[in-house]
Amino acid sequence: MSILNGEEQSEAESTADSPAEPADPLIELSDVEFGYTAAPVVENISLSITEGEYVAIVGPNGSGKSTLMKLILGLLRPDEGSASIFGEPSHTFDDGARIGYVAQHASASKEMPITVREVVKMGRFPHVGFGMLSAEDHKIVDEALATVGMSDFANRRVTQLSGGQRQRAFIARALAGEADLLVLDEPTVGVDAESVDAFYNLLESLNDEGITILLIEHDLGAVTDHAKRIICLNREVYFDGPTDDFVESDALARAFGTAATVMGET
C-alpha cells in the first residue's frame, strides 16, 4: 500500500453535478462469488457501473482486485452470481474492440523488437480480423498517437520507452480500438511521479470525452486525487461511493486492517 500526499480536489464541481439521468449499466455484477480453490477470493460482490463513470477499485494486496477485474472482463466465470458487460454475460461478450485494456507491462520478452506504432495498430486488429489495415485504420492509429502525445515516438522501439511513455502507448492502443471502456490494472507501477501525474491527466481528459474508466489501483493517493467513485475491496466490497465520502469514511481502515488514512485530506 502506498499513500501519497493528495492535492486539492480540482474536479470537485464536475463530480457534484453528475447525478444524471439513469443510464443502462455498462458493467453489472450481482452476488458474484469466485475462488480458485474452495475458499472464495471474492464474495457477495454486487455493483454496477454506468457509461461515463470514472471508477477506481482499491484494496490491499491479495484483496481480489485483479480477480474482480478478470470476472468483469469475462476472463474468469463467477462460481456464483452473474457478471455482465455491455448488457451481455461477460464470458460470452465478444465485441472486444469496445474494451481497452492496459496492464503494468506486456507479456512478451523484453527484447521483442516492436515499435510504438505497431503496438497501437493492435488496437485495430479486432476491427480488421484477418485482413489488412486500411488507410482509414492508419489514420485512426495516427490520431490515437497524437492524442496521447506520442506521435514523435511512433517509430521507436517499445523497449526504449520509459514506464510512463509505455503506458501512454498502451492507452493509444485502446483509443485506436475506439474503446468505450478503458480498464487499467495498476497502470502506474514503476512509473515516475511526474509521468504519473501526466498519465492521470490523460485519463481525466479521456473521461471528459465520455470514455468510461475502470482503474484497479493500490496507490490510494493517486486514486483519491483523480477517480470520481471508489470501490474499496477486500474479498467483499467495504465501500462503494463518491471519492469524497470514501476519504471521510473508515472503510479504508477496515479494509486494510490498519489505521490507514490518505494523507493530505483532513
Partner: peptide
Amino acid sequence: TAAAVSGI
C-alpha cells in the same frame, strides 16, 4: 491478456 480482452 490484452489479446484475450480484445476478443482473440
